[in-house]
Each structure stands twice: as C-alpha cells, then as structure tokens.
Write a protein that binds this DNA or RNA. Structure first.
Length: 467
RNA sequence: UCCCCUGUAGCUCAGUCGGUAGAGCAGCGGACUGUUAAUCCGCUUGUCCCAGGUUCGAGCCCUGGCGGGGGAGCCA
C-alpha cells in the first residue's frame, strides 16, 4: 500500500529523521486549528511519552471533511516528510501529505478529555488509561524494570526458573491463600464429618495459588546454584492499602553458598541496576514523573544510586528509635515488629535513603530463616525505602536439619507436609539465601506513584477484579 | 478487618439557616495568518450514589447499604 516506511513516533521525533518521508500510525492526542487554515495534530503511538506534531495543510483533499473533525482518541495513519520544526517545543514535526482516520472516538462519549484526570477516576477506566501520559510512562518504566531484572540476573549467572502458580502446599506461611478447586460450589462432596472432601478435588488434595516460589526456588538453588523466579503471586489478605495487591509480581532470587551478607549485597546491586537503567533509558518518562508526580524524584534516585545502602541490625534500629526523641504512636521495644511509622523514621529521617535491616528476632520471622549464634535472632533482612517502605524481604535459610526440625516443632508445623523441603537438608545441604522483591513496589519507588493500583495494568484487590 | 474523610453535569468541584441546582474545564457552534494546557464569544448538559425515615417541604437532617480516598494491620 504505502511507499514509505512506517516508523515510530519516538524515531520521528529524533532530529536524525529530518528529511525522511515516512508513515506514522497512532492515536490523536490533541488537534489545534491554526488561523492560517491548517491544523496541528499531535500523534502518540506509545513508543515514547512525547507526541509528534503533524502539520495538516488545508490543501489536503479531506481537510474540511475529515481533518477538521478529528477528535481526541481517534486512530490515524499519516504520511509526510519529517522536518525541523518551525515552532518552539519540539525538534521535528511532520508535514502531512495524507491523513487517514482509521477509527473515530466520539467526543460526546469518549471518557478521556484533553485535561488532567484523577488517578482514582482513571482506575475506573483501566481499559483506557494506558492512553494517558502517566500510564504510558508507567508502562514503559515497568517494561524497563522487567527487562533489567532478566539482564541483571542473567549477567550474574542466575537461571530463570518457572516455579508453579498452583501449589498443593497449604503451609507456605506467607499469608492467606486463594483456593483452586474444580469442586462445585453448590453441594460439594463431603466426608463423614460433613466437611468438604478435597480428596475428590482435581489434584486429589487442596490446592492454592502460590504466595511465593521460594520453597521451590530452594530446590533448584540447591541443585543449580543460583536461580531466580519472576512471576505472579497471590495473597488473599483483606488488605486495603496503597501498597498491597491481591495479585502482584515478585522476583525471587535464591542462591546456594550465599550467606546473609552476600544476599544483602545482591539486593543492593539489583536495586541499583534498576535505578541506573531506568534513569538512563526512560529519561523522558522520568522527567515527566519528576515534574508532575513527585518533585525531586530524579535527584533523590541519583543519591540512592551513588550511596551505599545503610545496613542496620534490628537491635541497632531499636536503639536508634529509642534515642530518636520522636513521639511514636506505637511503643518501640526489642522483640516486637517495627511499625510503619518506625520504618518511615529510619528511611526518611535517620538515613534519608534505603536501609537494610537485618538480624530480626526469631519470634517475628518465618520458620525457615537461619538461627544466629545468639539463639534469639535470625539471619533475615528487609530493604526499606522512603515513601514505599519494604520492597525486599529475604533471609539466609536454615540449612541445618536439626535446627530446622526444632524450629518447626516449636511452631507446630508438620514434618510430613515439608518432607521434600527437609530432604534438601538431608542430602547435600548448603548454606543458601534469597529474597523476594515486589515489582510493583519498586515501580512505585522509581516513579513516585503513590498508589500501587496505578503501577499494575489491571489491579486486583478486595472487591475489585474488573477488566 | 478497624479508624477518619468523602459521594452533586462527561471531568474537577461550589451549593449559606431545610424552600426542586451552579461554576470552571470538556463538548458543540462561531471568530482568529504556526499552534503547543492555544485564545476569544455564544450554547447545551443533572437518577444530587441507593433504600428507608423526619418534615408542609430534603442535595442539605437521621438510619442502613454501596462506592471512592487517607491512615493502621498483614506483607512484597
């Protein structure tokens, strides 16, 4: 059909495209009619934040019939020559020789207007919000972080492992789980006690959506050395906050022969790699977030990039909080978990940047974390960042069979349920460590977006699974 | 799940002491020799979240429900 190459808006905006005759395909963001009898059309195709300004001359055969009626949101194919722009604000523009409307968008009923919408309203239009500047930018940053994740771990020699989404283990201990069943909700089979008989279910037992790939990750780490997972994770908690989702994406590296220090260093390198790549490769999007979403964002991220992450043991953190002179709503005491206000003090006031807290009291952490020599704390670590809080949670795992069994007994966990997990300690056990990083949380941190529901394409949370 | 706030035009909101609703933006029409949140003039737009109740009369007061936001807990 067309004689000229189809290029992206991103490419067309580069000065290197000047003089080329090309075709662009995208959506109209705004139309301005000039006094001179021609129109400016701004086209976006998702390839970048900015639009390309297309000058549609009045001489076009369909100028009066089509061009003058183009409205926000319609799809277009335009051809013409890329020229240096006569106006301010853009390097290049297209002088169109043809403007073809592909699909219209009735301005009377198209929800998106040429004005700012609140994120709350946009959430109701999740099928249209990728067409806005903010969500386009979030989408590109999310993509860049995903790509960096694979690049980083691959370059570090980690194998990408696909751990199961459906798990039969009901005791992963990381929160409420969604049950997976094919039993009829009305009148399911029941055992003699009248309870639902899940032995008749699809898998012959209860099954759930995964809350973590860690335990399966350990299986591969104790065979292949260094592995990572990157997939969806599900929590059926009734949590309603700006940093929780029922379905989210998590990256979980697990490495044999890594101790807690290796683990903390890995987390720091990984987070910094993400920041570096996003700042370098999503500069225009990041500029947008810096101007419109979180002033000072870029400068703050650059500081994070340049400074080593502060490492503070739980015990030190308690003493810092006690000496802070701050008035906290919740008391600070050794042995109890840190409250959000405590974490906020540490990241936002005390170090003004990321903090790695480590060696937590065993009582407030999971059974699989390695007991320290003091017999009171475990080799756990959390990475906390300003604004968002915890983005990484991890630990060195308990590799000593007797210690692990003792701990499980203490917590009333059944050996049988974990037979294969315990086998890893029976046969060729090694010290090993890993962590989970919440993809959406690091996107929040990097973009400055306040609500986690606005950094995932289709958020799932209690009472909400539209789209 | 708990605490606080909130729900009025397509969007953002105002609405006094209880007397049947208004502004900006958007849209539509017009004007204007390159605009870029274009500008200027004119016009249109309502299940006042839902269900009860009080009252001569409810957008406003009361009760219940639903939705949204902020904070807390759970965590990534």
């Amino acid at each position: 059909m067309s004689q000229v190459p189809w290029i992206s808006v991103s490419e067309a905006r580069s000065a290197a495209s000047t003089g080329k005759s090309v075709e662009l395909r995208g959506w109209l963001r705004t139309r301005r009619d000039s006094k001179g009898g021609f129109s400016f059309l701004e086209i976006n195709d998702g390839s970048c934040l900015g639009n390309l300004q297309v000058v549609a001359p009045g001489e076009l055969s369909n100028y009066e019939s089509v061009v003058k009626n183009l409205s926000v949101g319609c799809s277009l194919i335009v051809t013409g020559e890329i020229k240096a722009s006569e106006g301010q604000g853009q390097a290049t523009e297209m002088l169109a020789t043809s403007v073809q409307m592909i699909g219209d968008a009735d301005p009377q009923t198209y929800p998106l207007q040429k004005k700012r919408h609140t994120f709350e309203k946009l959430r109701e239009w999740a099928h249209l919000r990728p067409r806005t500047n903010t969500f386009g930018a979030v989408t590109r940053v999310r993509n860049r972080i995903s790509f960096s994740t694979h690049q980083f771990f691959q370059e570090e020699g980690f194998l990408y492992i696909h751990t199961p989404i459906i798990t039969a283990s009901d005791c992963e201990g990381a929160g409420q789980m969604f049950r997976v069943t094919t039993l009829p909700a009305e009148n399911p089979p029941r055992d003699p006690q009248g309870k639902v008989d899940f032995s008749k279910d699809f898998f012959g037992r209860s099954a759930y959506l995964t809350v973590s790939g860690q335990l399966e990750g350990e299986i591969f780490a104790t065979a292949c050395g260094k592995i990572y997972t990157f997939g969806p994770t599900f929590r059926a908690e009734n949590s309603n906050t700006s940093r929780h989702l029922a379905e989210f994406w998590m990256i979980e590296p697990e490495a044999a022969f890594f101790d807690l220090n290796d683990n903390m260093a890995l987390a720091e390198r990984y987070v910094k790699r993400i920041l570096k790549d996003v700042l370098n490769d999503c500069a225009e999007d990041m500029q947008f977030f810096d101007e419109r979403v979180e002033p000072g964002l870029i400068a703050a991220l650059k500081v994070v990039l340049d400074k080593p992450f502060e490492r503070i043991s739980y015990t030190e953190a308690i003493s810092i909080l006690e000496k802070s002179g701050e008035k906290f709503d919740y008391p600070v005491s050794w042995g109890s978990d840190l409250q959000a206000e405590h974490e906020r003090y540490l990241t936002e006031k005390h170090v003004q940047g990321p903090v790695i807290l480590y060696n937590y009291p065993a009582a407030i952490k999971s059974f699989y974390m390695r007991m320290n020599e003091d017999g009171k704390t475990v080799a756990a670590m959390d990475v906390l960042v300003p604004r968002v809080g915890e983005i990484v949670g991890g630990s060195q795992r308990e590799e000593r069979l007797d210690r692990l069994l003792a701990r499980m007994k203490e917590l009333g966990l059944s050996e049988q349920d974990y037979w294969w997990y315990l086998d890893l300690r029976r046969f060729g056990s090694v010290p090993h460590s890993g962590f989970g990083l919440g993809l959406e949380r690091i996107i929040q941190f990097v973009t400055g977006m306040q609500n986690i529901r606005d950094v995932i394409p289709f958020p799932r949370y209690p009472g909400s699974a539209e789209f």
